[in-house]
C-alpha cells in the first residue's frame, strides 16, 4: 500500500504539497504542531500512487516521506 508519512513537527503548513497532489490525497488539518503551524494530513490513502510530487515540491528536507508497496 502506498502512503505518505507526515513528520508533523517539520511541516510549516505552506500547503504546496496539497496543491501539487494529482489525487487530492493531502489536506491541511486544523491542529497546530509544536512550532505553531497547521500541518498537512494524509487522507484518501487508496488514491496515492506514490508519485512523490508532494515530497519533491515540499521545501522541507523531511517533512514528508513517501512509501510504496514492496515489489513481489
Amino acid at each position: 500500500m502506498n502512503y505518505v508519512e507526515v513528520h508533523c513537527d517539520e511541516c510549516k503548513g505552506c500547503a504546496v504539497c496539497v496543491s501539487s497532489c494529482p489525487h487530492g490525497c493531502l489536506e491541511i488539518g486544523d491542529s497546530l504542531n509544536a512550532k505553531g503551524y497547521p500541518y498537512v494530513r494524509f487522507i484518501k490513502q487508496m488514491r496515492c500512487s506514490a508519485c512523490g510530487l508532494c515530497f519533491t515540491v515540499c521545501p522541507e528536507p523531511a517533512a514528508l516521506s513517501v512509501y510504496t508497496s514492496k515489489e513481489e
Partner: peptide, 29 residues
C-alpha cells in the same frame, strides 16, 4: 513497504543552528 522518497543522506540528521535536535530549515513556509 519501501521508502521511495525521503530525507536525503546528504543533509545532516539535525540542523544544530537553532538548537539540538532541530530538523526543519530556517526558511519561511
Amino acid at each position: 513497504t519501501n521508502e521511495k522518497f525521503g530525507r536525503s543522506s546528504v543533509f545532516y540528521d539535525t540542523f544544530e543552528r537553532r538548537g539540538a535536535e532541530e530538523k526543519s530549515t530556517h526558511y519561511c513556509p
